[in-house]
Design a protein around this nucleic acid. Structure first.
Length: 432
RNA sequence: UCCGCGUUAGCUCAAUGGUAGAGCAUUCGGCUGUUAACCGAAGGGUUGUAGGUUCGAGUCCUACACGCGGAGCCA
């Protein structure tokens, strides 16, 4: 039978008798008293079982119950300032639902290999629960942000016929009699079709990269949200990105502060994430690197170390715009004031978390775009539908993509993005 | 793909080339207020795999496998 009461709601039941269901997070005992820590997915509750208050059978169960066994407990709710949640349960009945035997994840420390091998159980742990709750709140904040601003959700296909940007390595598959198909690396080109139909759209879903990247910032399957807006120029794009990031961070601070505290996050650093964010050009970024003595050649893209050197000067996300066109994608519009530069923007999160947003104003001129496709040696026939967007009522438009896992990792203050998604997919691991 | 580090009990880790150890977990016992509780006891090992050096290898050498960190690439 489904539970009538969850731990998070116990404040309404002080002094009353309740029955709760869940799992044993941990147990302590002191002779005639057992302390059972119940978790139910909404919180943690210490249930106190005194030998004198329960039947011998119930006390026996409380003695034998093991970590992660499922059980139901009935007792009286009381306020307890010493308890983490503020409440405790004076138990007088405990019903074992299923005994857990030799649960592998103990309350002591474990190595990352062991934990990821047991990811299906690791997600029960307190920190993992906190991360997943923050992730969920971020996802909802993302949807709310766009939904409240007149955007329409526009779902792009996951299976695509071509390497849309011609840059990343993609996952390949045989698609019936039509030859090779690929898992999407970005919904952007499709989002552009949406923007010209609906004005402002966003895509939000999983994307795939077969890059052999083995770092704390990479997964082979990750979630990306990509807004695309008709009539927006690069400055409008940056304004939106800035408002968006502020909204996400401040929403999590308001609604998931307890989870951030469980994670040991320095909340004061997140409280500073308020508009306006610093905006510097690529050229200014190069100046900062030179000033710090970095060996950097104008024209190269910034590496991870370069990004950290630049962003460490700022307490807020820093927006770097106008990159050398040569290192950016074919669809980005050139700066009318300098043909070598693309109207692109990357947003680097503070504290060394690196790029969380990449965006640009798109090339809207048919002939220029045709030229770019030739320069990049891309097969024009695959892009005919995309070129149609310039043939029929082309307008200036812009958009960006935000990597969900990197954003969750930054806000939670994590070492590695593998903990930001329930089942991470990485170059050397696709289980469990 | 490249560079570096690692692989010993279920887990986290020790062990000058000379008897394989501890904490946690498990089992048993003790404790009426514990906060990763504590105290006592017990069981638990083909030291990643295959070779080699040596009187003797967890330890040294070679190859391979797997993992971790980083680079490149990328969000």
């Amino acid at each position: 039978m489904k539970p009538e009461i969850y731990i998070k709601d116990l404040g309404n039941y002080v002094g009353k008798e309740v029955t709760l269901q869940g799992w044993l997070y941990n147990k302590r005992s002191s002779g005639k008293v057992k302390f059972l820590i119940l978790r139910d997915g909404t919180g943690y509750l210490q249930c106190v079982v005194f030998k004198g208050n329960v039947s011998p059978e119930v006390f026996e169960i409380s003695d034998k119950i093991t970590q992660e066994s499922s059980f139901a407990v009935t007792g009286k709710v009381k306020e307890e300032p010493r308890a983490p949640g503020g409440y405790e349960l004076d138990a007088f009945d405990v019903k074992l639902i299923s005994l857990s035997r030799d649960y592998p994840i103990t309350p002591k420390e474990h190595g990352i290999e062991f934990l990821i091998d047991h990811r299906h159980l690791w997600v029960r742990s307190k920190k993992q629960v906190a991360i997943l709750k923050v992730r969920h709140r971020i996802v909802k904040a993302i949807r709310d942000f766009f939904d409240e601003r007149g955007f329409t959700l526009f779902d792009p296909p996951i299976i695509t016929p071509n390497a849309s940007e011609g840059t990343s390595t993609l996952f390949e598959m045989e698609y019936f009699d039509l030859g090779k198909a690929y898992l999407t690396q970005s919904g952007q080109l499709y989002a552009e079709a949406g923007a010209l139909a609906l004005g402002k759209v966003y895509t939000f879903g999983p994307t795939f990269r077969a890059e052999k990247s083995k770092t704390r910032r990479h997964l082979t399957e990750f979630w990306m949200v990509e807004p695309e807006m008709a009539f927006y120029d690069l400055d409008d794009d940056m304004d939106l990105a800035e408002e968006f990031i502020e909204y996400i961070v401040q929403t999590v601070l308001a609604d998931r502060r307890a989870e951030l505290e469980i994670l040991g996050r320095d909340i004061s650093k997140l409280e500073k994430i308020k508009r306006p964010f610093p905006r510097i050009s690529y050229d200014e970024g190069v100046e900062i690197l030179k000033k710090k003595g970095a060996d950097f050649t104008w024209g190269d893209d910034f590496g991870g170390a370069d990004e950290t050197l630049i962003s460490e000067d700022f307490e807020k996300p820093v927006m770097i715009h106008r990159y050398p066109a040569a290192v950016k994608a074919f669809y980005m519009k050139r700066d009318p004031e300098n043909d070598k530069l693309a109207l692109a923007v990357d947003v680097l999160a503070p504290e060394g978390y690196g790029e969380i947003i990449g965006g640009s104003q798109r090339e809207d001129d048919l002939d220029v775009l045709l030229e770019r496709i030739k320069e990049h040696n891309l097969p024009q026939e695959y892009f005919e539908w995309y070129l149609d967007l310039r043939r029929y009522g082309s307008v200036p438009h812009s958009g960006f993509g935000l990597g969900l896992e990197r954003t969750v990792g930054w806000i939670c203050g994590l070492e590695h993005v593998r903990e930001t998604i329930p089942f991470p997919r990485m170059i050397y691991r696709n289980t469990p």
